[in-house]
Computed example of a mutant assay.
Amino acid sequence: MPKRLHQDTAASPDVVIIGAGVVGAACAYYAGRAGLSVAVVDRGPVAGGTTGAGEGNLLVSDKEAGPELDLALLSTKLWRELASVLPPETEYEPKGGLVVAPDETTLKALRSFAEGQRAAGVTALEIAAGSLHDLEPHLAPGLAGGFHYPQDAQVQPAQAAARLLAASGAARYLGEEVTEILRAPDGSVRGLRTPRRELLAPAVVNAAGTWGGAVAALAGTELPVLPRRGFVLVTEPLPRVVRHKVYAADYIADVASGSAALQSSAVVEGTPAGPVLIGATRERVGFDRSLSVEALRRLAAQAAALFPVLADVRVLRTYHGFRPYLPDHLPAIGPDPRVPGLLHACGHEGAGIGLAPGTGLLIAAALTGAEPAMDPAPFRPDRFPKETAR
């Protein structure tokens, strides 16, 4: 063992979590609340990956009835609880969402979509064309109608991750890349190694986001996580010209699509600090960090089409990140039966911030043997055929 490698009794927690994004932070928070000692390891800073490049969406509006919506509803409840105990810097804002339709055909499809959501517990209120401007005075004229989702909310994602992690009481080892998952002779996990230390633990949680597949490979297993790049525009500070999270109906189809090609649909929202955030694009280009002028052009045009008042507003900056994409659009959450002691909490694509609390609660239940708050079976990490994971 290299002499610079540290090992002491403090480095033997009940669980080590790989990833200091919002999902890893939520896993640490709920594991700590369950009475476990926790360590969190990340090769970068807190929220240095996908979380720091997110908008902070806590959405139910874009999810069809099914396991992901169930997890979103659980997480929505938990975010409300967290908002009462986390510092105000988290910027929890229950602003609600508004999905708009350009024509009657699209409105009819939204109506059918909302019926399924209501059956699952979502509040979805149809808004007639003539009433859209009561909710959003600056919306473009001529829209056919829309649906208001009062359960949609937003947080400041990097602050949310930092505050959750601080409240967890976990030991933090930042700037340390995991180089090895340690395993016992029987194949079970017994901790991990970084260039600076060994952390011995009977459980390791893979909350590495877009790099979740690489962490799984370190443990000798497979998880087909792929990066899906997305851009966001940030405008100059404005009066509150956008009150809700507002997006066109085609955003829902983009979220559900598995296409590798560039897709864009305007998602527009104001922030407490004044700038308007404009997303969202999706494309599978690996970890290519180059700027896509076409993606930015589409976003700007679509946002101005929804809110003409934004046409002459200055864009101060743009940023982008990589969503951790899994082929069936569901995250991998829970124990991996192929590697005893390894758990996964990754693959949430663009919904990780919203789904983080529910994910953390499910992971804590799996670690302690408690009754889970919902059925975790749809999120089984070993549900993918081997050929999918290549």
Rank of each mutant, 00 (worst) to 15 (best):
E236N: 01
R323H: 11
R172K: 10
W211V: 10
K95E: 04
G209Q: 06
Y29N: 04
E68N: 15
V204H: 15
N206G: 15
P327R: 13
D288F: 01
I333N: 06
G54V: 12
V40G: 12
V22A: 04
R163D: 13
P381E: 13
T194N: 13
G321N: 08
I278Y: 04
I363V: 14
A273R: 13
L306Q: 05
R282T: 11
L310Y: 05
I333A: 09
R183G: 05
V293W: 08
R4I: 15
V189D: 09
R323W: 11
G230H: 05
C346W: 01
S290M: 05
H329E: 10
A162N: 04
V268D: 12
R228K: 13
G32L: 05
G220E: 09
V60I: 10
D382L: 10
P381N: 14
L86E: 11
Y319K: 03
S12T: 15
A114T: 01
G347C: 14
F287C: 07
P224H: 07
D288I: 03
V100D: 00
L238I: 10
G52V: 04
H344V: 14
P376W: 02
G358P: 05
L165E: 07
D70E: 15
V205D: 03
G369V: 12
R289A: 15
A39W: 02
L226N: 00
T106P: 01
D134C: 05
V204S: 11
R284T: 15
C346N: 05
T76R: 13
E68R: 14
R33S: 08
G350R: 11
P45Y: 03
P327Q: 08
P275R: 07
P94M: 04
L164H: 08
L291Q: 11
A305V: 10
Y92K: 11
P335H: 11
A158N: 04
A162P: 02
G142E: 00
V23Q: 00
I333C: 10
E55Y: 01
A25F: 07
G350S: 12
G49M: 12
G32N: 12
R4M: 14
Y30P: 03
T50R: 03
G213S: 08
S265F: 06
A124F: 00
R228V: 11
G44T: 12
A304R: 02
G350Q: 10
S264Q: 11
H329N: 15
S168Q: 12
T221E: 10
G270D: 05
E294M: 09
A160M: 08
S75L: 09
D14A: 14
A171K: 12
E349Y: 15
L86C: 09
S264H: 08
A373K: 05
P275I: 11
A114I: 00
F307D: 10
G32W: 03
R390H: 09
L74F: 07
R193D: 04
R43P: 04
D254Y: 09
G145A: 02
